[in-house]
Design a protein around this nucleic acid. Structure first.
Lengths: 336, 336
DNA sequence: AAAATTTGTGCAATCGTTCCCGATTACTTT
DNA sequence: AAAGTAATCGGGAACGATTGCACAAATTTT
């Protein structure tokens, strides 16, 4: 089996003690230059790597951070993860990614898992199902550094970073209005999710600005964020079967957009002629359509980077942090 | 700070020794039922979780597996990862995902990283740039269990699992031929990648079957798997500028397909009228197009599951494994 | 030249577990 | 009743690395 070299191996080979070897490798002042060189060269030769578990045990930290997202297949998250990794690896941290698939149960399990794995901190975007954040609050109260991004809770005080969802939603809705649409529906995720609430605000704000009444029948929530196709199909069908059916939909997410477009295609409802669609999406395929749909793009990579920087600041801070950032980053509307 | 309870805490609280507590929790036969219950209940109460670092140090294993893929944003890989996680979590393993972004340098770094993190095994799909597998061979020779999937090396003897790329490519190409196309180009990844070689075989086999000559000018390799848009654009332009320009392209991958479609759209070449496209893809948006493109779908989730099962078998085997599986799973052609 | 200081190194404890040995008590057996 | 055997439990080493302390030798100071 694979037995990596240890300090003891070096010590024995060189006739030194492990403490001397350790100090030499850490370049302490009390070790002679000669001995240091000796140790350095030998360590290099046998490709010595300190045992991370021993280090973690001693230092009580693991140099790794846990990430909880709904699914990596979502373009927003996969881009955010790239941003997270770019910072983490530079700073010597490992990234452990877990997926909730929008399930509250899985979110709890993953949280437990990561905590027991003694990660040094957590980067979390809540699942669509999550209404209760006790599992995270518990950890946070016990000193686990946590930074929330994208989908954030209101009842945990820590660094948070979100896109300007309200403005993004406003822009997208206004865009649909400017196209001459007046009967604009809104398809969104579960109603307790922060992004849902904020995007709904932006949507209604835009309607209000143009004196278009907000029709409650036009607002459809998918409690599982469109994780189950039936959910999306049901919502679309309800919209279509309305007496006064909408002529446009503002869709609040990647997965929902794809699901909705599939249903519309199945129903032979042409986009954008019969139904204009705009929504939040970080997918790069939307503009491949013959009639590409306009979309609000979040700076996912940047958000991932920023969230990681915030988390590392929490982790590496000598004193308990009491002032928390609440960063909002602007989105960009791609008119197509 | 977060100080989880330890065996010693339990031992002190209950007036027992750590060894007794340890044995009680592990349900050893030499501990009385009474003591066991006492310990169990108390451990439950304070929510005791064994320190994974201490365990890893002692047992010389980390209960985690490393995954190396080119990028999680690729639908094939994100689906495969879901398959990997489904098995791993069930068996109590953590999954550490790393991305190469098709870069050989990053693949080496990630391999090093994971090895030093003392993962118990590796699930690897080679990057497009990788021609030399010495970094993996080195680990493998020292006993690190490795299972390759999708993009596999020929010079490392271990479990491997791939899709039936040759047949998939054959089917797709034959499909294009059946549509009446005769001038079929092939856009693919770097020429040393196993999937490229196999898919090229399938492509030529189909052409041969229908007595269509293989035109070398029609075969375009992208050394970085289309990671850089210029690469794809260049290849497409070369095809378009051919005197005898092709009327169809068989594209060998997800990222390449999206890149190629973008270029074609930019060039105002209509798909499928002027250029019919078919290719390997696990994306679920391809059928949203007005004229959806046909694609070969790999059973990514299944492959991830199977690869993980193979890896855990290697990891948990008492004896060195010398017989290696080489599984080939059938693909499915979605005609659209 | 004796004392004080500096320099270079080793010993041993520590982190949280597991596990090999002993050790103690209780229960049988002759 | 003495001896043997289970049945329980504790002591302590080990895993690999760091680090305060001790200690010897070399150097400087008085």
């Amino acid at each position: 089996m694979f037995e990596p070299p240890t300090l003891k191996d070096i010590a024995n080979a060189l006739g030194l003690s492990t403490s001397t070897v350790s100090r030499a490798l850490r370049d302490t002042y009390e070790i002679s230059a000669k001995t240091k060189k000796l140790v350095f060269d030998y360590a290099e030769k046998i490709n010595y790597q300190p045992n991370p578990n021993a280090l973690s045990l001693k230092e009580r930290k693991s140099k790794s951070i846990g990430v909880i997202v709904s699914e990596v297949a979502n373009h927003y998250f996969s881009q955010a993860i790239s941003g997270i990794e770019s910072i983490a690896y530079d700073r010597g941290y490992h990234v452990i990614i877990t997926q909730t698939h929008e399930s509250y149960a899985r979110e709890k399990i993953n949280t437990q898992h990561l905590a027991s794995r003694s990660v040094d901190g957590l980067l979390v975007s809540l699942s669509a199902e999550t209404a209760d954040t006790e599992h995270l609050k518990y950890l946070h109260d016990r000193g686990m550094p946590i930074v929330f991004f994208d989908r954030v809770p209101s009842d945990i005080e820590t660094h948070k970073i979100i896109a300007n969802n309200e403005k993004g939603a406003f822009d997208a809705t206004e865009h649909l209005i400017n196209l001459g649409r007046k009967k604009i529906a809104h398809l969104t995720s579960s109603d307790h999710l922060s992004i849902s609430i904020e995007r709904l605000h932006g949507y209604t704000a835009a309607l209000n600005k143009y004196n278009i009444p907000v029709n409650p029948d036009y607002i459809k929530h998918c409690p599982h964020g469109g994780m189950f196709p039936e959910e999306t199909e049901q919502a679309i069908l309800e919209l279509i079967n309305l007496k006064d059916k909408p002529d446009a939909i503002f869709i609040a997410g990647d997965r929902l957009s794809i699901g909705a477009l599939e249903v519309l295609k199945k129903l032979n409802i042409s986009v954008p002629k019969q139904m204009t669609v705009a929504g939040f999406s970080n997918s790069d395929v939307l503009n491949l359509f013959e009639y590409p749909i306009s979309s609000v793009r979040q700076p996912a990579f940047e958000m991932g980077k920023k969230a990681t920087e915030m988390l590392l600041q929490l982790i590496e801070s000598k004193y308990p942090v009491t002032e928390f950032d609440n960063k909002v980053i602007d989105t960009e509307l791609f008119v197509r």
